[in-house]
Design a protein around this nucleic acid. Structure first.
Lengths: 164, 164
DNA sequence: ATGATAATGAAAACCATTTTCAGAAAGGAG
DNA sequence: CTCCTTTCTGAAAATGGTTTTCATTATCAT
């Protein structure tokens, strides 16, 4: 099967070939979906989106591709506590803004934020250095996540109280 | 069934009664296990430990109890990426040291660290305030986790390279 | 174009966690 | 202490996201 990538080699092709992986329609399609959204898609979300254009690509392949993409660092795998993993492009052709997540523990809504990154970077640098010295642990990545109640759910609570 | 808690009411009894929950042997046993370890136990780990002393307590009850304890904030539920949730006491009678985790992405080893908490608290305070102002998001908790390669796995890597 | 090798799809297996449901225990009232 | 309502519990079955299996197909260096 020939795909459009034969004519428009994408930015990530080099990264793939460098690791000895083949460029396939499924991988192209999955990366295309991920690069066109800012949402945190689940494997099934991605499968459904891919399925519209390529109905013969199976859920298994989606899982396998996602695992591969995580492994080579092209995407992140998140756990927001709803029982399924969610995936997000780590960086696009032009690089993507470093950000973290705010998770509402009531409705599950996830908000991306890019604020306060400067202070954060500073803290991380110190921490990484310190942890390396103390535990000889070589840090490659970090996760910062805040949990709380979103605006809508706070209003809900007030409403519910009022009704009683 | 009568348990020892009839004679030695524990520090968390008040918290339970306040929420309308009953004090049971299973709950007592599970909290006892959690308060006697610094490890990050899985539901099955806890079940096995409890099972030694109380063979009639089932895995279902362990899951249900853990869910309850998370809900009332007595324990934390962590995801270190090994496909099962791991649990840890949030605070003991005397309060427990606030800490975070270093996860080795190669062997899964988890190291607790309590360093750099001062700077972290400062950053969090700022971030929480800022996020509240910007998104009207009320933060109740946060998660910081570092990922990398532990000392042992770094050595492994060197060994493996040498063997080639 | 060809062949070695990697990738794929469908179905089944996996496995941590949840649900169901009938029986047992907790704890307030008397 | 006993009764009674309500909550809790265990066993077994169900659930549901993810992984494995295996025969077939696609990729791509030659």
């Amino acid at each position: 099967m020939r795909g459009r990538y034969d004519f428009y080699p994408a930015w990530w092709h080099g990264r793939f070939k460098g690791c000895g992986y083949r460029i396939t329609v499924a991988r192209q399609a999955i990366l295309e979906i991920l690069s066109k959204t800012t949402e945190h898609l689940s494997a099934e979300d991605i499968f459904l989106a891919v399925h519209k254009q390529y109905p013969n690509i199976g859920l298994t392949t989606v899982y396998r591709t996602l695992e591969l993409l995580v492994q080579i660092g092209l995407i992140y795998k998140h756990d927001f506590g709803d029982g399924r993993s969610r995936y997000e492009l780590a960086e696009g052709p032009k690089g993507k803004l470093h950000h973290h997540h705010l998770v509402c523990t009531k409705c599950g809504r996830v908000i991306d934020y890019t604020d306060f990154i400067d202070q954060e970077i500073e803290l991380l640098k110190q921490t990484e250095n310190g942890l390396f010295k103390k535990f000889n642990f070589k840090i490659t990545n970090h996760l910062i996540q805040f949990y709380g109640i979103c605006e809508q759910c706070q209003k809900e609570k007030i409403k519910n109280f009022a009704n009683k």
